[in-house]
Nucleic acid binder design. Structure first.
Length: 452
RNA sequence: GAGGUUGUAGCUCAGUUGGUUAGAGCGUCAGUUUGUGGCACUGAAGGCCGGGGGUUCGAGACCCCUCAUCCUCCCCA
């Protein structure tokens, strides 16, 4: 037997980590619920047709495919071998693989909406917190299995949805005590920029290049734009656009001068202005015209959340898209959504020491086991405490104090309850707080009403 | 898909120009200690040196292959 190991790019989460992650998950879920979003869960696997072709050529390669069962049956050998030949050519063959692991939450959501649009109440607001799988090469902060936390509203063009989603971001990060800036931009403004720099077909080139600004700097972006066949004059316009800075309103003015004479430019600026009009004066929502977001399906307002006190990539992002379910032959359902990057949020909180102490506690007390009769009595008291919602344990066997103390200490259990023959006799117990070393003798009645 | 890093005890790591029986710290277990832990002392268990091949009288160390790992790029969260 080989040494046990994890599959590449996956992780085990020990108790403390699970508790911390759950703290993040539950904070996010509470916020989603508070804004009227409803939970949705979809299967780990989808039919391969549902996923293939939805994430671009690169994406298709990163989808984990599931091998069909029963290929060893002799009557299937000939077709299986033929199919496998085609598989080797890089095609996806249903005879070999009919199913694949979920690659993100958006496409399964779209599939769900397309299948159930007759029954759903629109606008449909759902949130979904589940793992996804990608056959990517793992590296720092990148895994083959990771959680996504998405909330989307579909079936509504109202910008009020954008306002609400921005507000969810604010609320969640405030609760988690992470200082953030919520950056917004509009793809319509970027479309307008493309329009005056060579036409709409330049849009992907421009957004892909701009998206890298943070990482590679202005000069390299200009270089890349030139490589993508934009003229020096056009690159100059883009540079001016990217250099727009100042307060939100001032930035909108400057953008107006550059792209305000186009239809989509006007529209995009109007949208941003509307959303900003809902923000409090000290709001952390900030225009960032250099924000592009790589995904090409975004068509309207786009978001990205940046942590201010830690050098790390974005910890959340999202935006509006025109036609979620068109790929599944149900046209005309627009939507807008956001997503939280849980792994990075975790790293930020760990680095800034933001996890509250009470998320990391397990059981409150340990009953010592000092013999058969003592244990029976301790067990009955423990059960009564559990009825009151107090988590506790009884040591699994009668043994030396030393061992039982060390067990409690290692599990970070704050209290131990000692019931030996003396205590058994006079119906009392010794309650000891490990950290302070203080202990007191209580009657069992007092123990049952003690506030831990 | 491209480039690099590191694989030695449960964990973190030493191991000299190739030389006898591969070490330390932490952790684990037992004892000093059968009603009060953290400390101390004593002792014990724990290793196909990632795997395979080669060079050599001799390989943990050198060479080749392979697997795993982490990191960077592409792409993405």
């Amino acid at each position: 037997m080989a040494k046990p190991a994890l599959p590449q790019g996956t992780r085990d989460f020990p108790a403390l980590v699970v508790r911390k992650r759950n703290h993040i998950f539950s904070t996010i879920k509470q916020a989603f619920e508070l804004y009227g979003f409803q939970p949705l869960e979809t299967p780990a696997m989808e039919n391969i047709d549902t996923l293939m072709g939805k994430y671009g050529e690169e994406g298709d390669k990163l989808i984990f495919k599931i091998l069909n069962n029963g290929l060893d049956r002799s009557e299937k050998h000939i077709t299986a071998k033929n199919d496998f030949e085609k598989l080797l050519e890089g095609k996806t063959i249903k005879g070999i693989t009919e199913r694949a692991l979920r690659y993100d939450l958006t496409i399964p959501f779209a599939r769900y909406v397309a299948m159930n649009h007759g029954q759903l109440i629109f606008p449909y607001k759902r949130y979904q917190v589940q793992p996804v799988w990608r056959a990517d090469r793992p590296q720092r902060g990148r895994y083959r299995e990771f959680y996504q936390c998405d909330a989307d509203v579909v079936g509504s063009y109202s910008l009020l949805n954008e306002v609400e989603l921005a507000s969810i971001y604010s609320r969640v990060f405030e609760k988690l005590k992470i200082n953030v800036e919520i950056k917004i931009n509009s793809r319509k403004i970027l479309a307008a920029l493309a329009e005056i720099c060579g036409g709409a077909e330049k849009m992907p080139d421009i957004t892909i290049a701009i998206d890298k600004l943070d990482k590679i700097g202005l000069d390299k972006v200009k270089e890349e734009l030139l490589q993508r066949n934009l003229s020096a004059a056009q690159v100059g316009i883009i540079e001016n656009f990217l250099k727009i800075s100042g307060g939100n309103e001032s930035m909108l003015h400057q953008a107006e001068e550059l792209v305000g004479n186009t239809e989509s430019g006007k529209k995009g600026i109007e949208e941003l202005r509307f959303i900003l009009s809902y923000q409090a004066p000290n709001s952390n929502v900030k225009i960032d015209f250099t924000l592009a977001r790589g995904l090409n399906y975004y068509t309207g307002v786009i978001f990205e959340v940046k942590a201010l006190d830690v050098q790390i990539g974005s910890i959340g992002g999202g935006g509006r898209y025109d036609d979620l379910t068109g790929l599944f032959d149900v046209p005309g359902i627009p939507g807008v959504g956001i997503s939280f990057g849980v792994d990075r949020i975790y790293d930020v909180m760990e680095e800034l020491n933001l996890f509250p102490d009470d998320v990391i506690t397990g059981p409150q007390l340990l009953f010592f086991n000092l013999g058969e009769n003592e244990a029976r009595h301790a067990f009955s008291l423990l059960q009564q405490l559990r009825e009151k919602g107090i988590a506790g344990e009884i040591y699994h066997e009668s043994s030396k104090f030393d061992k039982q103390f060390k067990y409690a200490e290692k599990k970070a259990i704050p209290y131990v309850v000692i019931i030996g023959s003396k205590e058994l006799e006079n119906n009392s117990c010794v309650l000891k707080h490990l950290q302070s070393g203080e202990q007191q003798t209580l009657t069992t009645g007092q123990l049952l009403t003690y506030s831990f």
